[in-house]
Design a protein around this nucleic acid. Structure first.
Length: 282
DNA sequence: CCCTATGTTCCCAA
DNA sequence: CTTGGGAACATAGG
């Protein structure tokens, strides 16, 4: 409300248009990245920048610069700028990007708008956790990315031997494996038949191969579905994703396992809800 | 009022 | 040094 009033003071746009928020993991951010590559082509000049939330800091220097197709690193997006810097975007819990042509309407939860000769790129974020900043370099030391890199079971097994945590927490550790979030971690372990409470150091090489196969299949399918829409995820053009119909355990506490019929359990691991089947996952 | 939430960071304790 | 717990960020929905 405050944002809208401030916005209204700045410019003379129509009242807010209602649009929902999001919550992106690797497949969702990858879907945005692929769509942005189409939209931005070989680079698009930013005609005007509108910042509606002072939490984002000053992004004035973007106006007049050229925005190029982004690279996804983990759950983050890095857009090269003509000047050699990068625009770093992380959507956190509820951030969302929308490409549209509603040049005169202020969108609900809109925090940032980049205007191009054709179209508008907006950041929408109800909870205002998303971060946008201009940085000089992209991260050099990178975590392993199951979609972009040739990750082997051997290297994960070896990394896991030295850790004193659970496989669930290990999969969510962004400094080791980039991009896996809370939904896909539960799904990956169910498909692999691994109990999320297992000590990561106890996993065999064979079990790691199962986890890696599971992760590749699930993340790949989720990308081709343009992500998972449980409540309100939408892609760059406002369309829902399709992976929700493939979810086997996430959000299904007390419902029967599709594989064995056992009622699914939920517990907290590392402070996050974790869904699994006591029978299928050992 | 209670609880939950697809993420990350920070402080503190074991 | 590591790990986990809890709080924080801020808002909506059940």
């Amino acid at each position: 409300m405050l944002l809208w009033q401030r916005r209204k003071h700045l410019d003379n746009l129509a009242p807010p248009v209602e649009l929902e928020g999001t919550m992106p993991e690797l497949p969702e951010v990858e879907s945005l990245s692929l769509a942005l590559k189409e939209v931005l082509g070989s680079g698009r000049k930013i005609l005007r920048t509108l910042v509606f939330d002072s939490k984002l800091g000053s992004l004035d220097r973007l106006a007049g610069d050229t925005l190029y197709r982004p690279e996804r690193i983990g759950k983050g997006l890095y857009f090269p700028l003509a000047g050699g810097d990068f625009l770093q975007v992380h959507l956190r819990m509820t951030g969302r990007l929308l490409h549209h042509s509603l040049s005169r309407e202020f969108l609900r939860y809109e925090r940032l708008r980049l205007e191009f000769e054709e179209g508008v790129l907006s950041l929408l974020d109800p909870r205002r956790f998303a971060t946008v900043m201009v940085v000089e370099t992209i991260p050099q030391r990178r975590a392993l990315d199951i979609v972009k890199d040739q990750v082997t079971a051997e290297e994960l097994w070896e990394r896991g031997l030295r850790k004193g945590t659970t496989i669930k927490s290990f999969l969510l550790d962004q400094s080791i494996l980039a991009g896996i979030g809370n939904i896909y971690a539960s799904e990956i372990l169910h498909r692999a038949g691994i109990d999320p409470r297992r000590a990561v150091s106890s996993l065999s090489l064979t079990e790691w191969k199962a986890i890696l196969n599971s992760a590749s299949a699930i993340l790949g399918l989720a990308i081709s579905c343009r992500g998972t829409t449980i409540s309100d995820w939408r892609d760059l053009f406002g369309r829902p994703g399709g992976y929700q119909r493939y979810l086997k355990v996430y959000g299904r506490e007390g419902k029967p396992c599709f594989r064995c019929g056992q009622l699914l359990k939920r517990l907290k691991i590392g402070g996050r809800s974790t869904y699994f089947c006591q029978v299928c996952q050992k």
